[in-house]
């Protein structure tokens, strides 16, 4: 569990990037910080691994104030994936993945074996191990970045707009992989994005932020969608434009059991199955997320 308590960050030039931020990030779930550019998401994230130190307030991981932890040791124990992969261009993929292991004096052969396994984990061909980052596609680089973040088997994985720079198809792939990884590896993921759809897709908990990292709303995607706390939230999630309010299309005839759904703007938004003309119902327990049935224990973040 990561806890922010009245955390403020004012940069040297006077910019107040984060103002009195308090929140709890539960273990083994995905928490997403979402908000528009400059609202302080990256600053929040980087305070968790002490790449940025707060001006005021306390951040605790499993009850320990991280200000008391040596930054280098802290960073080695937390995975960090960034937008531009941040791979070392002069090192082969395998060495990039093994970076943290090698820093912590894991024998080279062992570190490399682990790096190869991680290539499998993130869905990359082992044949890429000896390439340099510059010889990979953007999507492949991001996967390598994720593999590097996972190398030391950290409990916490920080991801800062990791899929911002790849095309939509690859992004969809990577999002699915992230969901799979979270489920399989049971990590505490803190994810930053400005894409609300991505936030709802990945997040068990979504924290919508306004300027200065002021919390506009915090909750599960279902809670937020069903009950936007303010006009700002409604506008941010697209509810005010009717993007989220769907109706059955009157014009297009159903194909098979499916009927077409349109949003308030009249644009096709999806289909819904309606066997025998009746809408099917289901409970909101997305397969993508590992939710509710796992209790969060103290000491497991």
């Amino acid at each position: 569990m990561i806890e922010f308590r009245s955390v403020t960050k004012q940069y040297a030039d006077g910019t107040r990037a984060v103002s009195e931020f308090s929140a709890v990030i539960p273990s083994r779930k995905t928490t997403v910080f979402v908000g528009s550019s400059g609202c302080g998401k990256t600053t929040l994230l980087r305070m968790i691994n002490r790449m940025v130190d707060p001006t005021e307030g306390v951040i605790e991981i499993d009850g320990h104030d991280i200000a008391a932890t040596e930054p280098v040791a802290l960073r080695r124990s937390i995975g960090y994936v960034m937008q531009n992969s941040g791979l070392l261009p002069h090192r082969r993929v395998i060495d990039n993945i093994a970076t943290v292991l090698l820093l912590t004096r894991v024998p080279k052969a062992e570190a490399h074996a682990r790096a190869l396994e991680l290539l499998d984990t993130v869905g990359l061909d082992r044949a890429l191990a000896n390439r340099y980052p510059g010889e990979l596609s953007g999507g492949q680089q991001q996967r390598v970045g994720v593999a590097r973040g996972l190398a030391a088997n950290p409990n916490i994985l920080l991801m800062d707009e990791p899929f911002g720079a790849v095309d939509p198809i690859v992004r969809t792939d990577l999002q699915a992989e992230t969901i799979r990884l979270q489920r399989e590896l049971d990590k505490t993921i803190v994810f930053v994005t400005h894409d609300i759809d991505e936030a709802f897709l990945l997040g068990d908990q979504v924290i919508i932020l306004e300027k200065g990292a002021t919390i506009a709303q915090q909750g599960s995607p279902e809670e937020i969608l069903a009950n936007p706390a303010s006009d700002f939230v409604a506008s941010f999630i697209g509810a005010d434009r009717g993007k989220r309010r769907l109706t059955v299309s009157a014009d297009v005839p159903a194909r098979g059991d499916d009927v077409l759904l349109i949003d308030a703007g009249g644009y096709a938004a999806g289909v819904i199955s309606a066997p025998g003309g009746k809408l099917a119902s289901g409970s909101a327990s997305p397969k993508s997320r590992s939710v509710s049935n796992k209790t969060s224990q103290a000491g497991d973040a």
């Binding site: 980087r46 691994n49 790449m51 280098v72 040791a73 802290l74 960073r75 080695r76 124990s77 960090y80 960034m82 531009n84 992969s85 941040g86 791979l87 070392l88 261009p89 002069h90 970076t99 943290v100 820093l103 590097r148």
Partner: peptide, 21 residues
């Protein structure tokens, strides 16, 4: 700068950043 920043973020000491990156 992003490369240096990434090296720091994965837990390299300042000296390791200098020597290895």
């Amino acid at each position: 700068r992003q490369t240096i920043d990434a090296a720091r973020a994965v837990g390299m000491t300042e000296f390791q950043i200098l020597r290895k990156v």
